[in-house]
Amino acid sequence: MGIWHLEILRIWRTRRIIALTAVFLIVGIGDPLLVHFLAKLIANSSKNGVTVIAPTPTPASSIAAFGGSVAQLGTLVTVVVGAATLTIDSRPALAAFYRTRIQHPRDLILPRFLVVVVFTCLTLVIGIIAAWYETSILIGPVRAADLAVGFGFEALWVLFSLALVAAWSSVLRSVLAVVAWSIATLLFLSLIGTIHVLSAWSPSVLSSSIGSIVAGRSPNSFTGVSILSTIGAIVLLGFSVVRISRREQ
C-alpha cells in the first residue's frame, strides 16, 4: 500500500470526510433556508406591537450567508481536520514508524496536505451545490459561473489555511495546540483585514469571497490577494517540510 492510498484511507476511515461533508452540506442547505424564512421568523417572534422589518432575501444575500458560515464554521472544521492529519509528531512511536520508512519528510507531508486540500475542496463543492440549489428554488437564480469563480477563491483560502496548519504542526507537537495557534493566526489575519489599507491584501478576504462575487464584485479585485495567498501557502508548506526534516522525533 502506497502513501496516497494510505492518506485516502485515513480521511475515509477516520470519518474526517463525514465531518467536512456534514458541515459544508448543513450550511449549504441551512443558510439559504434561514435567509428565506428570516422575515417570517422575526415577524413571528415580535411582541407588543413592535415591527421588525427584515431585508428582502436575494440570491446574493443567501450566498453571502453561506460564504460567512464557510468562513467561520467551515474554516474551523478544516483546521481541526488539517491539524489531526498534519501533526505528524503528535504520536512519537507512530512518527518513528513513518520516519524510518520514507526517503524524506516531504514524502510524508505533501500527500497528507494535498489529500486534505482536495477532499476539503470536494466537500466544499457539495456545500456550494446545495446552497445553489436551495437558493435557486427558494429565492432566485444564481449564476453558476459566479459560483465557480467564487469556489476558486474559496479553494485558495482552504489551501492557505491548511498550509498555515502545516507550518504550526512543524513547530508544535500537540494537535490541540496546533488548532489553537492556527485559529489564532487566522483571526489575526481577519483583524488585519479590517484595517482599510490592508483589507485587500489579507488572505482572510478570500474566506467569504463567494458571497462577494455573487453580489457583483469583480474577480479582478481578488487577484493581488490570490497571488499573495498562493505564495504564502507555498512558503508555509516549505517551512513545514524544512522544520520537520530538521526536527528530532
Binding site: 500500500m1 502506497g2 502513501i3 492510498h5 494510505l6 484511507l9 485515513r10 476511515r13 477516520t14 504520536r91 512519537p92 512511536a93 507512530l94 518513528a96 514508524f97 513513518y98 524510518t100 520508512r101 520514507i102
Partner: peptide, 27 residues
C-alpha cells in the same frame, strides 16, 4: 535499517495486514 520502539504504535484504523502492506509499501 529497521527500528522498533519499545511501545509500538500504528494507525488504529488499519488492519494488521494493512500495517504490513504500508510498512513494505512505504519503502
Amino acid at each position: 535499517t529497521a527500528y522498533c520502539p519499545d511501545i509500538a504504535e500504528f494507525e488504529p484504523w488499519l488492519s494488521p495486514a494493512e500495517v504490513l502492506e504500508v510498512s513494505a509499501g512505504l519503502l
